[in-house]
Design a protein around this nucleic acid. Structure first.
Length: 743
DNA sequence: GATTTAGACATTTTT
DNA sequence: TGTCTAAATC
């Protein structure tokens, strides 16, 4: 294999990282410094130059998308497929381990994965069953509690309530939840990681096997790892310490979800001989954009320190637009986008970023009005849609009748006359005998003590599932799926709905059959089943793991649906402007970036601005957003914004002040346009005629300093204006007495 | 069992 | 202000 090109087109720091000697390596990779590139070239270097087999390489990412991209780029660079390499997400890899060693992990063979929605429903149900008031004990909070405990590696029995009521109750819910999961053979996302960790921790034979095998472990986005993921990596790396991690502490924006930036610092402590490489040359943005971003992030005290530089030209200044209100903000942004498109930019060159998803609506409306196609990131994904989950629930019952979450979902969907009272009886019986709901239902039916109507309804359901199970044995996955639609009568049910979504739902269900067919096609080709989030090896000679993973097509497909929820919108690859939250922009780049809502309270968000650590994370989020821009960066804030129904007069974000003024071009609200004002008399009027000031105009007050005119009312001597002062906030002033000066 | 209405509530999200 | 959920009602 010709490997000469592996180091050729890399800069010095990248080369140093890629060819680092065996042992632990920490690569601090700034935004746009070629992070993925280094990872991919490192793998190529290991297998091509250092003599490692693809077999011995484990590469871990956070998202399926990142995993796919990495594999793709490795194969492109090496010019051949790399079988045997494990490239996948933490969850995908943990899942694979658990499938291979389900017995040792204490799981049923056909264990199923609960997604967050399943988890939420289950917890909600349990809280009710425990006779707790779910307004006092919100399921969301319990879910958060359970997941954060698992992320820290803690089981319910390890926890101590410390005499605290709240704590005690949460622990009780955690315990009940875990028992319910065991009964149903269900594993949630956090459980995948925790179980996989416990498996390696408690079974030295298995641990040694994988330590032997994975001589090279590489981790992407290391700053996003949580405690259990880091523990898992340490366990697996063993004494060899061949851990190659890439990350950027300045881009850590998922602390709220358990990610520990400290892991980067701990890494150097835990692996004392770590080689550290900084990638500081940026290949993405112009010098002005980069300098502005550097200036903002430098306000964070706890950084490892990095200073990005570029050989690129200065480029345009960062443009800051002070909008009159949120509508004006959207109008301005869309106006600039039209201009950019007219002057030859593609729509896909442009992204609008915002802190909260609710902000997208105004931009969408403005884009719609301007007739510019757009795409919003986020939202429901294919396998998360209600109708899809309904169908999957039937499939889950076919695979495992003890799955209570699936039972609860499918039993009366479509409605077949099984009401809350019947279900309560089934639940009570299941709880009393510690069995699954399916089992409880069978016993109740056999007992004959049930009302005839309820019993018949339940029998109808039993029949559906049993028929399905009988007739789909040895059936192809796609045919099985089609048969599920037939027997469940879900399509007929949605056909009846008159909310306009019925047709969409039916089409989605048909798409599910297609998805199953595609999945079938993939796994038929290989000699083992393709597990989501991982790439399958061919065969391992005589080892623990060479035991083929015994898993039906159906179970593989169900796992795939949970671990890889699919795209937001099917087939939306049209040339369009991209809208997304700042969080989902991480890892992407666009020639033109617009960030809206640069206001105190919104960004940094009010829920994060009291705590210094969370404020730092907000600043990192700002840094992430700014560094997405290649050529032009627009930052917008509004003088007034309607938030939850009432008006607010936010101050411009502190992050704006942190940008050196010489890098900024301020854009004023169009001064030639006066806005109409409604006078108490009832008619329209121009603010300028009645008060002498235009809306949006900057004025100075002897006591309050400078501000912007937001509103005006009244006439003559009673004319008043509302001014948003930078220091004092929004105030109404009588023009005749206020002594305001235009600035 | 479906439809309507009232009430709560409102960061960020992948697996 | 807009959306989502849950009780209330037909």
């Amino acid at each position: 294999m010709d490997v000469s090109h592996i180091l050729d087109d890399l800069n010095e720091a990248q080369r140093e990282a890629v060819s680092a000697p065996a042992g632990s390596t920490l690569v601090l990779a700034g935004a746009g410094s070629g992070k993925t590139r280094v990872l991919v070239h490192r793998i190529a270097w290991l297998t091509g130059v250092a003599g490692a087999t693809p077999w011995s390489v484990l590469a871990v990412t956070f998202t399926n998308k990142a995993a796919r991209e990495m594999r793709h780029r490795i194969e492109h660079l090496l010019g051949q497929p790399v079988g045997g390499m494990w490239v996948g997400t933490f969850h995908g890899l943990a899942h694979r381990l658990l499938r291979a060693h389900w017995q040792e992990a204490g799981l049923p063979k056909a264990f199923q994965i609960l997604d967050s929605d399943d988890q939420h429903r289950l917890i909600k149900r349990l809280i009710r069953e425990m006779n707790l008031d779910d307004s006092k004990w919100p399921p969301r909070q319990a879910q958060w509690f359970i997941n954060s405990q698992k992320d820290e590696g803690r089981r319910a029995q390890h926890l101590d309530d410390g005499g605290d009521h709240y704590q005690r109750q949460m622990i009780a819910i955690y315990r009940a939840y875990q028992e319910a999961c065991e009964r149903s053979g269900a594993v949630d996302f956090a459980e995948l990681l925790l179980r996989a960790h416990e498996l390696l921790r408690d079974r030295t034979d298995i641990l040694h096997h994988y330590r032997e095998r994975f001589a090279h472990i590489l981790v992407d986005e290391f700053q996003d790892t949580n405690s259990i993921q880091y523990a898992w990596l340490r366990l697996l790396s063993g004494e060899r310490n061949n851990l190659f991690v890439v990350g950027d502490d300045d881009q850590s924006i998922y602390g709220w979800r358990g990610a520990k930036v400290e892991n980067i610092r701990h890494f150097q402590r835990d692996f004392p001989k770590t080689a550290m490489v900084r990638l500081e040359q940026n290949y993405r943005s112009t010098a002005n954009i980069l300098q502005a971003s550097n200036a903002v992030i430098s306000n964070n005290p706890s950084r490892l320190g990095k200073n990005l530089w570029t050989e690129d030209k200065d480029g345009d200044p960062v443009r800051v637009y002070a909008a009159f209100n949120e509508v004006d903000e959207a109008r301005f942004v869309i106006g600039r986008i039209s201009d950019a498109i007219d002057s030859g930019h593609r729509r896909t060159d442009v992204a609008i970023l915002y802190r909260t998803s609710a902000q997208s609506r105004l931009f969408e409306e403005a884009l719609l009005q301007a007739g510019i196609p757009y795409r919003v990131y986020g939202g429901l994904r294919f396998f998360e849609r209600a109708e899809i989950k309904d169908a999957l629930a039937y499939m889950r019952l076919v695979s495992n009748r003890d799955s209570d979450p699936a039972f609860e979902r499918a039993v009366n969907q479509p409605p077949r006359g099984i009401g809350p009272r019947t279900l309560d009886a089934v639940r009570a019986h299941a709880r009393d005998f510690g069995c699954s709901m399916w089992h409880a239902m069978e016993e109740l039916l056999a007992g004959g003590s049930m009302a005839a109507r309820a019993a018949n309804a339940l029998k109808g359901f039993v029949e559906v599932i049993e028929e399905l199970q009988l007739e789909t044995t040895d059936m192809q996955l796609a045919d099985l799926t089609a048969q599920v639609l037939n027997r469940s009568r879900l399509p007929e049910h949605f056909k009846k709905s008159r909310d306009g979504k019925g047709q969409d739902r039916i089409e989605n269900l048909e798409e599910l059959v297609n998805a199953a067919r595609q999945f079938d096609g993939i796994s038929m080709g290989s000699d083992s089943i393709d597990l989501p989030g991982t790439e399958i090896n061919s065969s391992t000679p005589g080892s623990i793991e060479s035991d083929p993973i015994e898993m039906s097509e159906l179970d593989a497909f169900l796992s795939h649906a949970a671990l890889e929820a699919g795209d937001t919108q099917a087939g939306e690859h049209e040339e369009s402007v991209q809208l997304m939250t700042l969080h989902s922009a991480k890892g992407l780049e666009f020639p033109l970036i617009f960030i809206g809502g640069m206001e105190e309270g919104l960004f940094p968000h009010s829920m994060s601005s009291d705590d210094p650590e969370r404020l730092e994370e907000e600043r990192r989020l700002c840094y992430v957003g700014m560094t997405r821009a290649m050529e032009q960066l627009y930052l917008c804030h509004a003088e007034s914004r309607r938030l939850h129904g009432s008006d607010s007069y936010p101050m411009p974000s502190r992050f704006l002040r942190e940008i050196p003024p010489d890098l900024v071009e301020e854009i004023r609200s169009r001064p030639d346009v006066s806005r109409p004002v409604i006078t108490p008399a009832g008619g329209f009027n121009m603010a300028e005629e009645t008060t002498g000031f235009r809306l949006g105009q900057r004025v100075a007050h002897p006591k309050f300093g400078e501000g912007v005119v937001l509103n005006a009312e009244g006439q003559g001597s009673s004319a008043r204006v509302q001014v948003n002062f930078e220091a004092a906030g929004a105030k109404w002033l009588v023009v005749a007495y206020a002594n305001l000066q235009a600035v």
